[in-house]
């Protein structure tokens, strides 16, 4: 899944050694990868830690809306695919936590920050999966948007993040196809199935567009992030690309994108589309999404009610080490 850079107040004023900073910036500008032991400006480290951990949290929280349907998937094949997909998300979470740890923050600290509400995760997962078609819509739209954002991140300047993205992107592309295939099937199915598919598109379309983050003129970090090659394209560029690719996919299966202002603009060579409701976006960022409380409750409960398992694993490892040492 995917992350939005949501912190609007980051200060990138630097008190760094100008020589080191210049050398760093030259390396980044030459498209070299920065590795964990390399010198890097604190703001770079901070921004990346925040972005990668948000991305990791999004993968883990993102397991919940989809996990919600594993027990109810309507065929053995769908159940197997969904299990495999959610397993991939867990795997992505794991690489990303590991990538973030190379920047000096432990996984426990990151999880703590998630549970305390200090760290964010993608707003999209605060919407409910009330019907089966939502699993199709998540794959098609949400993972579709994620790919759009993550393909350029394969060339992001931080080596561990870029390498994690290579594998993540391969898997996301399978996720997106399976989601579209679910929608294709529903859209060509019974009237009830078609209704499910359209309803899911209606609900997931705008939140998917919000996944790219605020508009460029309202995204203060974009310039610095692009300069440091943490980001490769602006939010609006990616959003436009997503709309241009997705609209014909909806047409192909006879579904209607819920935007009366959506139309092809020959001159621009892309679609014009309606205004995103940013009030909704910021409300969800603040934790006011429809099922935000459920998501955080589920994560905290999983972590807290199973603390004894992790403690037991540590205790056992210590006993074993002590026996081996004796």
């Amino acid at each position: 899944m995917y992350t939005t850079e949501m912190q609007k107040t980051a200060q990138v004023v630097s008190a760094e050694d100008p020589e080191k900073l210049a050398a760093f910036e030259a390396r980044v500008a030459a498209d070299e990868f920065i590795e964990p032991k390399d010198w890097m400006p604190e703001a770079y480290r901070r921004t990346l830690t925040r972005q990668i951990s948000q991305h990791a949290h999004s993968e883990i929280v993102g397991m919940l809306p989809e996990g919600n349907w594993i027990t109810r998937a309507p065929s053995l094949r769908r159940k197997a695919i969904l299990l495999a997909k959610v397993q991939d998300e867990a795997g992505h979470g794991l690489y990303l936590y590991s990538a973030a740890e190379t920047l000096g923050t432990s996984r426990e600290e990151m999880i703590e920050a998630l549970h305390s509400g200090k760290a964010k995760y993608s707003t999209i997962f605060n919407y409910p999966t009330l019907i089966w078609a939502d699993i199709g819509a998540i794959g098609w739209l949400v993972d579709g948007a994620a790919i759009m954002n993550q393909v350029p991140l394969q060339r992001t300047s931080y080596g561990p993040y870029a390498r994690a993205m290579v594998r993540v992107c391969k898997e996301e592309s399978f996720h997106q196809r399976q989601g579209y295939e679910i929608m294709m099937h529903l859209a060509a199915g019974t009237p009830e199935q078609k209704r499910m598919a359209q309803d899911a598109l209606d609900r997931w379309w705008w939140p998917s567009l919000m996944m790219f983050g605020p508009t460029d003129d309202n995204s203060p970090n974009t310039a610095q992030s692009m300069r440091w090659r943490i980001k490769r394209d602006t939010n609006d560029e990616l959003r436009q690309k997503f709309v241009d690719i997705t609209k014909p996919q909806a047409d192909a299966i006879g579904l209607t994108v819920p935007d009366p202002d959506l139309r092809w603009n020959e001159e621009k060579g892309g679609h014009d589309f309606g205004a995103v409701d940013w009030e909704e976006f910021y409300a969800v960022v603040r934790g006011e999404g429809p099922v935000a409380r459920e998501r955080m409750k589920a994560r905290r409960e999983a972590w807290e009610s199973n603390a004894w398992v992790r403690e037991a694993a540590v205790a056992h490892a210590e006993k074993r080490a002590a026996r081996e040492a004796a």
Binding site: R77, K79, L83, Q87, A90, G93, A302
Partner: peptide, 28 residues
């Protein structure tokens, strides 16, 4: 499959889903 997203750690979540997937494959 009921465990998905609720396991003690990400690693355990992965292994439970992995076993579930094997079993659903056998069942199929």
């Amino acid at each position: 499959g009921e465990w998905c997203g609720h396991a003690p750690s990400v690693e355990v979540d992965l292994s439970l889903a992995n076993m579930g997937l094997d079993l659903i494959g056998q069942a199929t």
